[in-house]
Amino acid sequence: MNSFTSEQTPVHASPAALRALIESRRAVRRFTAEVIPDEVIRDCLEMAVLAPNSCNLQPWSFQVVRDPALLKQLHPVCMSQNAAQAPLIIAVLARPDTWAQACKDIVTYWPEPEVPQRIRSFYAKTAPFQYNQGPLGLLGLFKRQLVRVLALRKPLMRGPNSKAQMRLWAVKSTALAAENLMLAFQSHGYATCPMEGFDEPRLRKVLDIPRQAIPIMLLAAGRQGEKGIYNPRLRFPLEQQVTWL
């Protein structure tokens, strides 16, 4: 059964099981040398891309680094931190540049024999207008002015109408996929550590990252090693961060 296209009866995990999984996830800084099987990595990536995302354009990509020589090159790029010595590192990339191809792919991979006309129309006209910023961002500038005028009469979605907004748009969806990815590894008994401490220009050279892709994190994964968790968990009081209206 294709998990991406089949109709399924909704499955509800128990709150206790979900809480146990989430609470068990910690940022692990030391890993054993045990290699994660490819089938486990693939399963985790399949769960990652089931994350909700804007307009279903799935603006992400992943570079799976398993080669020992390449991992060795990444270690100094990651400030030589212990977590970067994991047997697996996945570069999680936000892709504000893939929306046009994604609009075509929606129609190509539609999970029903016939693509509804409203879907064809949306991804042929509405979505391209919404996400295209034009040469030098000039179309985005025009759209910002147009929205400013039209919004005087009714509420409107105000973006993304600039290249900076497109970067944020892609990062938000990719972050959701990254959380799925971490919990997926946790469900298989593997630990993870999301690393933001890396030298991006050097990272781009080592991994040959596309120019417009945004590395939002390097995810180290593997079996938790001895003294892999440095400190007890600390979260601020919920009342400090939540407003009930």
Results as ranks from 00 to 15, higher is better:
L18C: 13
A127R: 09
A127F: 12
E114C: 07
L207Q: 09
L57F: 03
Y123C: 00
R144P: 10
L45M: 06
R233W: 03
S173R: 06
L234M: 05
P128G: 10
R30D: 12
N231C: 09
P37L: 08
K172M: 11
M1T: 12
L176I: 08
N231V: 08
A33V: 08
P113E: 04
H188F: 02
P59M: 12
L150Y: 03
K227M: 08
E200T: 15
C193Y: 02
L88K: 05
F198M: 10
R118D: 12
P52G: 10
L74P: 13
V171R: 04
K72Q: 15
Y230H: 11
M157R: 04
R25F: 13
Y109E: 05
Q133D: 13
R158Y: 07
G189T: 07
G137T: 03
R66V: 07
R153D: 02
T9N: 15
D105F: 02
I41H: 00
L88W: 03
V242S: 05
C78P: 11
K227D: 13
Q81C: 11
L207S: 11
T126S: 15
S121C: 00
F185H: 02
F122P: 00
V149S: 04
C103A: 14
L139S: 09
F62M: 12
I214R: 00
N231L: 15
F185L: 07
M217L: 14
I119R: 00
C103H: 10
R167I: 08
D67S: 14
Q8M: 13
E179M: 15
A124L: 02
Y109I: 10
F198G: 09
A83S: 11
C55L: 12
P59K: 09
N132C: 15
P111A: 07
W169C: 08
H188T: 00
G140E: 00
A220N: 00
P215E: 02
A69E: 13
L57S: 01
N180E: 07
N132F: 14
A69L: 12
H12S: 15
A20F: 01
E46K: 03
P68W: 05
P201V: 10
T9W: 09
I209Y: 06
M166G: 05
Q186K: 12
A86S: 13
K143L: 02
Y190W: 06
T243E: 08
R42F: 14
G197M: 09
R211P: 10
L234S: 06
V171A: 07
F31E: 03
P52Y: 06
L139P: 10
V28L: 07
T5D: 14
R233H: 07
M182S: 01
I22H: 01
P232E: 10
P10I: 04
E46L: 12
E112V: 02
S14L: 13
L234Q: 08
F31C: 09
Q63P: 09
V77A: 03
R158Q: 14
I90K: 00
K72C: 10
R158G: 09
M182I: 03
